[in-house]
Simulated assay, not measured.
Amino acid sequence: MEKAIINPWQWQYERSYVQAVEVKNANSTLYVSGQAAVHADGRSSNADMLTQLNLAIANLEEVISKAGYRCADIVRLTIYTTSAETLWPHFPVLQEWISRHGIQTAVTFMEVKTLFETLSVELEATAVR
């Protein structure tokens, strides 16, 4: 698989995302539903935003790995949160994770009115290999 990154500007590099990813010669695509702070037994977390973000990242990694993909295969990431103001101070955690795995992804960040039960952040991804 070959990926072409489309960035007409430079500012997005500081924020750990790209404007577009063109995938050429892809063999498989994985569409991952929103991963949130849900424990292995199915219980939703009611922890603080940072704890929920870390668990959502771990759950996303688990699903991607179980499917035989790598985090670097993520080409699209949608971040849903019930409070952009509360999530934003923790955004460097997400940026560090993106950088550590060499992820080059188109990102959408969206504040929503509510998520399931007590959840405050959810990560949805598309991975291609």
Score class of each variant (00 low, 15 high):
48 D>I: 07
83 S>C: 08
129 R>C: 12
49 M>V: 14
30 L>C: 06
112 V>N: 06
128 V>H: 04
50 L>F: 00
75 V>T: 14
46 N>G: 14
127 A>R: 03
125 A>G: 03
50 L>K: 08
22 E>A: 15
60 L>T: 05
100 R>G: 04
4 A>W: 12
72 A>I: 04
68 G>H: 01
59 N>F: 09
83 S>G: 05
96 E>H: 07
100 R>H: 14
24 K>F: 15
66 K>D: 08
49 M>Y: 05
2 E>K: 02
89 P>V: 06
23 V>I: 08
88 W>K: 15
39 H>V: 13
68 G>Y: 00
39 H>S: 15
27 N>T: 14
116 F>V: 10
28 S>E: 14
103 I>S: 01
63 V>A: 10
60 L>V: 08
90 H>I: 00
9 W>Y: 12
105 T>K: 00
21 V>I: 07
83 S>M: 06
128 V>E: 14
117 E>S: 12
126 T>H: 10
15 R>P: 01
56 A>W: 04
116 F>S: 14
44 S>A: 14
31 Y>L: 14
28 S>V: 11
23 V>T: 08
31 Y>R: 03
110 M>V: 12
111 E>D: 09
28 S>H: 13
1 M>N: 00
37 A>T: 12
121 V>R: 07
95 Q>A: 13
123 L>Y: 10
40 A>W: 09
42 G>D: 03
110 M>S: 15
7 N>E: 09
88 W>M: 15
69 Y>A: 04
92 P>S: 06
122 E>N: 06
31 Y>I: 13
28 S>C: 13
29 T>V: 15
27 N>H: 08
69 Y>Q: 02
83 S>R: 04
42 G>P: 10
63 V>E: 11
67 A>T: 07
